[in-house]
Design a protein around this nucleic acid. Structure first.
Lengths: 339, 339
DNA sequence: CTGTTAGCGCATTCAT
DNA sequence: ATGAATGCGCTAACAG
């Protein structure tokens, strides 16, 4: 236990164990190929010196960064942080760091600043959770392997791991039409957003399957606030819907708040269905009927897909994870049941 | 634009510009000290080659990691992800990565696994958001500078950046006693938790200031579920309270859900106050009266404190950020006003 | 203001 | 099964 100022290097361990640095390295990375006795000697020397591997040096030597970059629109949004949680879990298991870049954070200087991070020098791979980025960003020759999760970018040919958004829309509508609803409004995400588009497709398919023609849609931006704002617009409609399907739970919760403050009862006067099954949705009043998607799982799958890509293994271009309907108390049969 | 397989190195740029590698390096890190004309030549060569700095090599040379590790109890919890958002913002501005380690994640092999990351080789500094970790973990000689944010660990003498938890508790109680409440229950976080302890102290101070003696406390674990469960216990009390202060918004929301399902009206029969002002709390029914703390700001302050520490600058041992009362609709005067 | 030299700590040849 | 030598790509010290 010498009292040097600097942390011990691999050489110090080697000297103490009476072996070469190469042998210590082997004990660290592939213990099987080293003789029992020398291995024990090395391990003892490691313990005695308190040696820890210099990760940066190894990364340089191995020509890697040791981290994967996640591009998220908003770190503070629980929706994304749950996906990140799944990503982090898989990466840790493979000795990789999760690097997070908030694409819309205060002080992030716009797309060109993001481009600067899309380099093999900055990360070993990228997981994109933001469907609003420009596909051109990822075409730089220096860009590491890319996987898209949850949302996706038009024109970017990188593997995608998605929830079955269309099926979710279809399930929600089937539930509502099954209850007898005919005037169903769809509160969507931003127009053009990949989630909006595929959920809308499922909604239209569901309406058609039930023989319902009217398909009103209103668009929001996935926020609580926009759901709340939508309530005003809906209350002002000449022929208000008897049920509303929202593209996410937060808009649904904001909407219910607005509808109730506007004098309606949910579900007696109007039914509401969300999407995502955020934890809160089980505790709203009334508890929210919604489409469940497993976000941590989606993150894990995306991370695994990226690892495959990095290792040069085959990786499917598109993976679709199942969703399911969760019936709670925010939906009921319409008051004036159809004849 | 030569078509080599590997990305260009600093030498390639130097050759093309007709200067030495050192000069290129200077242009990159400190352009001011290089002559105008050579600088332009180098910049042109950089553009022509598409050169990007190898971050790992620089980190090795400069004996740093280029990243700060955040220890969070649960990445998926929006409470923490908002703090992380503030941390990430400051770190980015200083060219540092945010590395996230979920201390309770699936597959994280317990405390000893966390200890393995607390090394100068793994990060340039650590921000601890988890008050339940063992202080001994941070006493390893190889541990980089540490700052605690939000929660803190008993016996760990690292700078703390905290919200004014006691004041929050005091404000909540003052609000309730001001409305005329006398039987006030405090739904706390886990016993021994640093937040619980300081908020409890504020509550007791507030009660004493109002001349109220009875100070019932029940403990939960900050989750929606535990708030919901507390409702059952409260409904069963012989002398139920007329108001409840919860140590966070999620418990408050779960609690309201349970109270309403149990037949009570909020705030007519019972008032509820939360803590945190999560976004959702403005959209519950009724909207939640709560104590606002600015989580992103807390993250920014913690990150700045850590940067100071890393640079060897002075850093206050404790920084307390203000909180404020936000009155919404979940609180009202008690029905049977005291004489 | 710029070039030369050296080395950050490690993993990987190639010998033995 | 192990050791010696080499270089990953960059920046800092020193000369000039």
């Amino acid at each position: 236990m010498t009292r040097t100022g600097r942390p011990p290097r691999i050489q110090d361990v080697a000297r103490l164990a009476g072996v070469s640095a190469a042998t210590v390295s082997r004990v660290l990375s592939n213990p099987a190929i080293v003789a029992e006795t020398t291995r024990l000697a090395v391990e003892e020397a490691i313990a005695e010196t308190g040696y820890t591997l210099n990760v940066t040096a190894r990364n340089l030597r191995q020509q890697q960064v040791g981290g994967v970059l996640a591009l998220v629109p908003n770190l503070a949004n629980p929706f994304f942080s749950q996906i990140l949680s799944g990503i982090a879990e898989v990466l840790r298991g493979n000795g990789l760091n999760l690097l997070v870049l908030d694409t819309t954070a205060r002080g992030s200087a716009g797309p060109e600043a993001i481009g600067a991070y899309l380099t093999r020098s900055h990360s070993d791979g990228v997981i994109v959770l933001d469907g609003n980025l420009d596909a051109a960003l990822f075409r730089q020759t220096s860009c590491p392997p890319v996987v898209q999760a949850c949302e996706w970018i038009g024109g970017l040919s990188a593997p995608r791991v998605l929830a079955d958004n269309a099926e979710g829309g279809r399930l929600a509508i089937r539930h509502l039409t099954g209850l007898g609803h005919r005037r169903i409004l769809h509160l969507t995400g931003p127009e053009g957003n990949s989630l909006t588009v595929s959920r809308r497709a499922g909604v239209l398919a569901g309406l058609e399957a039930a023989g319902v023609t009217a398909g009103i849609a209103l668009s929001g931006d996935f926020s609580l606030r926009s759901g709340h704002a939508a309530a005003q617009r809906i209350l002002a409609l000449a022929e208000p819907p008897t049920a509303i399907f929202c593209d996410n739970d937060e808009m649904a919760i904001g909407l219910i708040n607005g509808l109730v403050q506007g004098g309606l009862r949910v579900p007696e006067d109007i039914s509401v269905v969300g999407f995502d099954n955020i934890e809160m949705s089980a505790y709203t009043l009334p508890p929210l009927t919604t489409i469940r998607q497993h976000r941590a799982r989606l993150g894990r799958h995306a991370a695994n897909a990226l690892l495959a890509l990095i290792d040069g293994q085959p990786c499917p271009e598109e993976e679709i994870l199942p969703v399911e309907l969760l019936v709670r108390a925010s939906t009921a049969a319409p008051m004036a049941a159809p004849a």
